[in-house]
């Protein structure tokens, strides 16, 4: 029992760095480093040694915030090794939706297309739907106070390294997993329903080709202090690392901007896109005011529950709701 658990846990940790389907795959980290160095040397005109020191700034990598990132990563992986089997599997969702589609539509409109066309459609569809789902859940995490209580954990990072991408409260982790299962389950069911056994995914090293492209082009720099920005026109389509850093900024004018993961179109649609500000030095966190113990495990893991409970309680206590509940008929 303990042994299987340990094996699962260690292979899970391993997969986080060696599975090209994961953001922190070493290959992507190396790509990010190369891009960062190139940016600093070629555009910021730093000497290579200087650039190297900028990338591996001790004050960033060994800050209390970054140490908390590491701890959270381990604790969460431990928790999810337990939780994973209990989470709704995408195959269950896919099977259910497939049967539902066939049951309600009453027919199966099998569409004839070439293999490569179907694979291209499926890959693109999955990428866009997943990107939108990420955006929208993220948007809700900021808009709903109860969810914000948990998402704050991610935003409490004062310094950012690629590992900050996993600075996530477990409750949020469960929501992410559900989101991912839903997106994948729906997509698989829909495509198999329409194209039967012809459906395939275009992959590079086993990862969705488009996700791979996003990751090799420096996705890991979103959580870093290297403020790489794109041309202005491009920032209307793709979120640059600098734009995501704005999302983490403590300046009130930056609050609730740039929720997108890869595409900027969702932020445009929801009117919350903010282009990068190459000349502004950003500070990261929830607000400028530093809370004592803000990186303590108690603060990170338990405080969100206290806050969420409080919010729910306050809402219920509103006289209108309470009287509605206790009203005699």
């Amino acid at each position: 029992m303990f042994e299987t658990f340990l094996t699962e846990f260690s292979s899970d940790i391993y997969a986080n760095f060696f599975d090209p389907r994961k953001r922190l795959f070493v290959g992507y980290l190396v790509c990010a480093l190369i891009i960062a160095l190139a940016w600093l040397v070629l555009l910021r005109k730093q000497k290579i040694q200087h650039a190297w020191r900028t990338c591996f700034d001790k004050q960033v990598w060994f800050s209390a915030s970054s140490r908390a990132d590491g701890l959270i990563f381990f604790i969460n992986r431990l928790l999810f090794t337990f939780l994973a089997p209990a989470l709704l599997a995408k195959l269950t969702i896919a099977t259910f939706i497939f049967q539902w589609l066939q049951g309600t539509l009453g027919f199966r409109p099998l569409i004839q297309l070439a293999d490569w066309q179907i694979a291209a459609c499926f890959t693109l569809w999955l990428f866009i739907l997943d990107d939108f789902a990420r955006f929208y859940l993220h948007y809700l995490m900021h808009r709903w106070p109860v969810l914000w209580a948990f998402h704050k954990v991610h935003h409490s990072a004062r310094t950012m390294t690629p590992l900050t991408v996993l600075r996530t409260h477990p409750v949020e982790g469960v929501l992410f997993s559900l989101r991912s299962s839903l997106v994948q389950g729906i997509s698989i069911a829909l495509f198999v329903f329409l194209f039967a056994n012809q459906v395939d995914l275009v992959t590079v090293l086993g990862a969705n080709a488009l996700v791979f492209a996003f990751n090799v082009t420096g996705s890991n720099l979103r959580h870093s202090h290297i403020a790489i920005h794109y041309w202005r026109f491009l920032e209307y389509w793709l979120i640059s690392p600098a734009q995501h850093q704005i999302h983490h900024s403590t300046a009130p004018r930056h609050f609730d901007k740039n929720f997108g993961a890869t595409l900027a179109i969702w932020d445009r649609l929801f009117r919350c896109l903010h282009l990068s500000e190459p000349n502004t030095v950003l500070s990261f966190g929830i607000s400028k005011t530093v809370i004592p113990d803000e990186h303590s495990l108690k603060q990170l893991y338990l405080q969100p529950f206290a806050e969420a409970t409080n919010i729910i309680w306050q809402t219920l206590r509103k006289p209108r709701i309470l009287s509605a509940l206790t009203q005699r008929r």
Binding site: K22, K90, L91
Partner: peptide, 19 residues
């Protein structure tokens, strides 16, 4: 079969990646 093959191919959905 295609459902489960694709599900396998997409890998674990349990991801705590936070953007």
């Amino acid at each position: 079969a295609n459902l489960s093959e694709l599900a396998d191919k997409l890998g674990s959905a349990d991801s705590a990646e936070n953007d």
